[in-house]
Design a protein around this nucleic acid. Structure first.
Lengths: 259, 259
DNA sequence: CGCAAAGTTGAGATAGGTCAACTATTGTGG
DNA sequence: CCACAATAGTTGACCTATCTCAACTTTGCG
């Protein structure tokens, strides 16, 4: 289980350099009192009295450096994970070896669901930036769920939402639509975190975006350039500004940003 | 919307005509004692004592004619559904109106999960053949889940499996791979039902297959023809025979059939 | 400074889509 | 029972979005 520790991650992953940079950028660390679990799982108002119980699920926290694996294909599934800060990507692995990025996970989001079915992780999860995650012991979650029906619902809702999102992603939309929808999705999720939604940094590489959207990196690049040319966005390297959100919405098709 | 209009269903829904043809073909009706819910939700051995409780979830059953809608986009979500016989397709609807077939549901499978998130159905579910489904009152399911932790796990596993499947579907595989994987998936699921896995009828139209696999119907047709030419399968209209399953596996990439 | 990684841009190749004609099957009504 | 119409599927020819390959630029960092 602790294969994870490896330096800073990936197989190729050329030793991440300086460990000095980490001032936990990537945004604020969510206070544990409104740990993702609580915020996400419990619809609307969560009674303060429940918080401690919720926190009972969090068996530990972990700090990840960029490129470090949170879990790997085939590992035993024992926990779900909630992102408190930073960003991760999670993948599924086709047995033919190719890896698809199913989703990027921002603070407040929960990952690991794909593993429930086979009780082993069906893909990898890798930090894209310095990140802090809570471990949610699945056994404990199930135990607590018996006392808190809301929790069951919450879990199912998360699972349902992600299935829905993935389903939509499946759609045969063209490159512009996909990229536009992706930008809006990111923007919306950042807004949900109370961060700037109109101007933000892409935490992931073009290649990751391309993989996620099932496009060639070159295509992503071209589309971004095109959008810039049309003054819909401003992009330079990883920083993005949405200039004409309405038009972007329009390009994306009225596709829902995330749910 | 619903450009899919399968003959006798669709939006206009011309009250099911001839109610004469139905001898409940489409295979056996599963005995309620091993209703999908039990089989699917409860891993491995289900204690006979639990069966009645499980059955407590089944608030009603319903018979559907081909083309009939089980639920429609936007309807309030109150139940999950378990297929006892026949076959259904379930879709998600992009707000731009296009409809994707997320999955086909054979006996023993459960549908409706995508609706949990928004508490309304995010797509349609339509019978492809005469079908019988159980209604699983979601409220009741949640209630029972408190007494039967296994049930929670079961539900999450189903949700997880379908997310996984959809995730894999997302992959950018070419037409041959997709069709091959699709045939194997069907075959495997039929086998799981104890039905013939090497020779079966496609219950869905080429158009539905194409939509599901995100291809043009013509492409599906061409691929099938190609596979026939290469003696990997025999097809004629809707009947399929897997002649060289090994080769088919190989074409599909070692992609897992369903889970 | 200089290399390595990331990103951009261009040109040509191609898988699959689109359009359209054609065939086969099924159901309908005389 | 036989046209006829409607639906489903097949096949071909062409078109286009995207991929691939490759050169080039920029950035980050030792």
């Amino acid at each position: 289980m602790a294969v994870l520790g490896s330096g800073r991650g990936s197989p190729p992953m050329p030793g991440g350099r300086g460990s000095r940079r980490h001032d936990v950028d990537a945004g604020e660390v969510l206070p544990c009192s409104q740990c993702p679990v609580a915020r996400v799982c419990l619809p609307a108002s969560i009674e303060p009295a429940q918080v401690p119980l919720i926190e009972g699920m969090v068996s530990r926290q972990r700090y990840l450096e960029p490129g470090q694996y949170l879990f790997r294909v085939g590992e035993e599934f024992t926990s779900l994970f909630a992102v408190r800060s930073g960003c991760l990507k999670s993948t599924v692995l086709d047995p033919d070896g190719s890896e698809h990025i199913l989703n990027f996970h921002l603070p407040g989001e929960v990952l690991g669901f794909a593993a429930i079915y086979q009780e082993r992780h069906a893909g990898n999860a890798i930090a894209l930036s310095p990140a802090i995650v809570c471990y949610l012991s699945f056994r404990e979650v199930l135990r607590l769920a018996q006392s808190f029906p809301q929790l069951i619902l919450g879990l199912l809702r998360i699972a349902s939402r992600s299935a829905l999102y993935t389903g939509r992603l499946t759609g045969d939309h063209n490159a512009v639509v996909r990229v536009a929808a992706f930008l809006l999705s990111l923007s919306g999720r950042l807004r949900a975190q109370g961060r700037s939604a109109a101007e933000f940094e892409l935490i992931m590489s073009r290649e990751d975006i391309a993989n996620h959207l099932r496009l060639a990196p070159e295509t992503v690049s071209r589309v971004l350039t095109q959008l810039r040319t049309e003054r819909v966005i401003a992009v330079s390297r990883r920083s993005v500004q949405l200039l004409d959100e309405e038009r972007l919405q329009c390009l994306a098709g009225p596709m829902l940003p995330y749910g």
